[in-house]
């Protein structure tokens, strides 16, 4: 299990990195390496060139804006966990990230790496969809922003062009007082989820659902928003019965299956995780204070 030979570049600036990427047809970006390097060691991937962006200046920032929080592509998963901004403004992401792998893999694993690897079971893409992510792609040709729907095209397939690199993701920060919940089931804590659910809930002054997002992970090729469940919850008081009814709409969305998690089983898990995520989100949401 030794990686095949490759050329190695370690650009110091984004321009340098994008220049290298533009000139190398068979290059891979090396970020945290927690998914790519095992594939190299198993010789399942053999790129001619690795462009190591670990020392590109400015890619590891967490920037708090009025409505959005911008995360640089090289923000480590462990840094997200520790970030007061993330915990305060993006509690969903903070909860999701703590369930990725193990502390030592999160030390290296990055936001951008997880989004670009786009494993169907990954936590960050599911949270990103729930948080209306805008993905910032840069190339020597310029910069553009993609919605999650444009970015997550299919099973481990992104909408990035070959010369493009993900440099940041802009996530919607829900208003103070919203509730978030992230639930997943895996064989062992830290394993790839067999189903996950991300929920965001905001309540009005009467305790009715004012805004809601429900996203499932590990149930389809890409993260999936359960809009029917959201519609069912909107404007209503989210008691146990309603949450269970809404969560039950998650099961039929499942299309991914394998011998370890057949469709019927994953559907039950999806429903259970949706229920748990919604329950947690509702429980954590404050009623909007009615202006005096």
């Amino acid at each position: 299990m030794k990686a095949p030979p490759f050329d190695y570049h370690r650009p110091a600036s984004l321009d340098e990195a994008l220049g290298l990427l533009a000139g190398q047809p068979d290059a891979r970006i090396l970020a945290g390496g927690q998914s790519l390097v095992p594939m190299l060691n198993m010789r399942l991937a053999a790129p001619a060139t690795l462009i190591d962006i670990n020392r590109v200046d400015g890619l590891d920032r967490i920037e708090e804006g009025a409505d959005r929080v911008t995360l640089g592509a090289m923000v480590r998963q462990r840094a997200l966990e520790a970030s007061p901004v993330v915990r305060r403004r993006l509690p969903l992401l903070a909860e999701a990230v703590a369930q990725i792998g193990h502390p030592v893999t999160r030390n290296r694993g990055t936001v951008g790496g997880s989004l670009c690897h786009l494993d169907p079971a990954a936590e960050i893409p599911a949270a990103a969809l729930a948080l209306d992510a805008r993905l910032v792609a840069a190339s020597a040709r310029g910069t553009r922003r993609l919605a999650m729907e444009e970015f997550a095209l299919g099973m481990m397939t992104t909408g990035l062009e070959p010369d493009e690199m993900l440099v940041a993701v802009e996530l919607a920060a829900w208003p103070e007082g919203h509730g978030a919940g992230f639930a997943e089931f895996a064989r062992r804590p830290g394993d790839f989820a067999m189903a996950s659910a991300a929920a965001l809930v905001a309540l009005d002054g009467a305790g009715r659902v004012d805004a809601v997002r429900l996203v499932l992970g590990a149930v389809a090729a890409t993260p999936l928003r359960v809009t029917e469940a959201e519609a069912m919850l909107m404007g209503r008081t989210p008691d146990t019965t309603l949450i269970a009814e809404a969560a039950a709409l998650a099961g039929p969305c499942v299309t991914l299956e394998d011998p370890q998690a057949p469709l019927w089983y994953r559907a039950r898990l999806a429903t259970a995780m949706a229920k748990r995520a919604l329950t947690a989100a509702v429980g954590r949401a404050d009623r909007k204070r009615v202006a005096a």
Binding site: A244, A247, A248, G251, P252, W264, A267, R268, T271, A272, K275
Partner: peptide, 9 residues
Amino acid sequence: TGPRNGEGG
């Protein structure tokens, strides 16, 4: 004794 697939619980 129990509910079926998709009904949760």
